[in-house]
Amino acid sequence: MTMQPKGRLRDSLSPILRLEGALLGAVCIWLFAGTGFSWWLFGVLLLSPDVTMLGYAAGPRFGAIVYNAGHSWIGPVLLAAVGHVAGSPLVLALAFIWGAHVGIDRALGYGLKYATGFGHTHLGLIGPAAKA
């Protein structure tokens, strides 16, 4: 069973986490702009991490694991490190796009998922779960 903070504690952290996401997303967009790659690449790939939602076809627990793997900061940071060490501007650009997606999602209130269902996030309830 996954425990999550209730009521005021979670609600008091959500605006901070959303602002943090917005700022990190903005930094990733700014860093992408410095790579010189086309904004078409950015636009085409920006929503690609949402493919991880398909994991929910195998159930909420597996779906949460797959979704969270594609929506945590771990992936973009590691990819940026690889791009930096390898001296690959393309890999860096991909990391910044991925990071922008994560930041924008956080800013909009789409947090990491609990195994209890897609609508149960570390930022609060979303979608139909919020209306229940």
Rank of each mutant, 00 (worst) to 15 (best):
M1K: 01
M1G: 04
M3C: 11
Q4N: 06
K6Q: 15
L9W: 02
D11R: 11
D11Q: 15
S12I: 01
S12P: 01
L13R: 13
S14M: 10
S14K: 12
I16R: 04
L17V: 08
L17R: 10
L19H: 00
E20C: 01
E20Y: 05
G21D: 13
W30A: 07
G36M: 01
L41V: 05
L45Y: 10
S48T: 13
P49C: 10
T52S: 15
M53V: 03
L54C: 03
L54A: 07
G55P: 08
A58W: 02
P60G: 01
R61H: 00
G63K: 04
A64V: 08
I65T: 03
I74R: 01
P76A: 00
L78D: 14
L78E: 13
L78Q: 13
A80M: 06
A81G: 15
H84E: 13
L90R: 02
F96D: 08
W98P: 14
G99R: 08
G99N: 10
A100C: 11
A100I: 06
H101A: 05
H101Q: 07
V102Q: 10
V102I: 15
V102C: 13
D105L: 00
D105P: 03
R106H: 07
R106Q: 06
A107V: 01
L108P: 11
G111R: 01
G111M: 13
K113Q: 12
Y114E: 05
T116E: 03
G117C: 02
I126P: 10
P128L: 06
A132Y: 08
A132H: 12
